[in-house]
Amino acid sequence: MSSTALTIPPTGIVNDRRNFLAGVGKATLSATAVALIVGCESLAQGSGTMSDVNILNTALGLEHEGIMAYQIGAESGLLQPEVLKVAVMFQGHHKEHREILAGAIRKLGGTPVAEKPKAEYAAALNVASIKNQADVLRLAARLERGATNAYIGVMPAFADRGLAQVAARLVADESMHWTVLASALGEPLPAKALSFGA
């Protein structure tokens, strides 16, 4: 891919590569995350609680995978500086999602699922086949679209509608990521409405 094909919007983000690489694994609950969960007034033990915990943990598994995929992409040395910044920002969003999900799971009395070893993600995502920046972006776009559609498909299963709304806010981030990545790759925008979840 030529650098002119990239239309990554300006970010103005503060993270740099050093912060990015150092930040993995830290999980402090941001103010937004706390507010989101507190805003979920119906978040209390009830009949659907365990099934909601299970769905939240599956979603958390997706976020772990996404965080690691961006990590691998960032460490690959294949990303141009301005693209790296965006990747770091998107990874940051997924880290916030991780906090929100883990917080909700704990609040419901569950145990957040742990991330797997990096090598397992690398093998499962076949990162060995990644040769250039476009490959990294394609993997990220595919994961973001997959996560979007996954969230859409589990939302009807939440017993707690407040959690479904939280999931809706997370999925909006994922589809925004997909849109940016797809345009960076020069892929056409979806011609039809309702392209996600289809």
């Binding site: 365990m50 099934s51 299970n54 769905i55 943990n57 599956t58 996954a150 589990v154 009807p156 299963a157």
Partner: peptide
């Protein structure tokens, strides 16, 4: 019941 997929078609 008790599964972890949750996803529906």
């Amino acid at each position: 019941p008790g599964q972890r997929m949750g996803f529906r078609v």
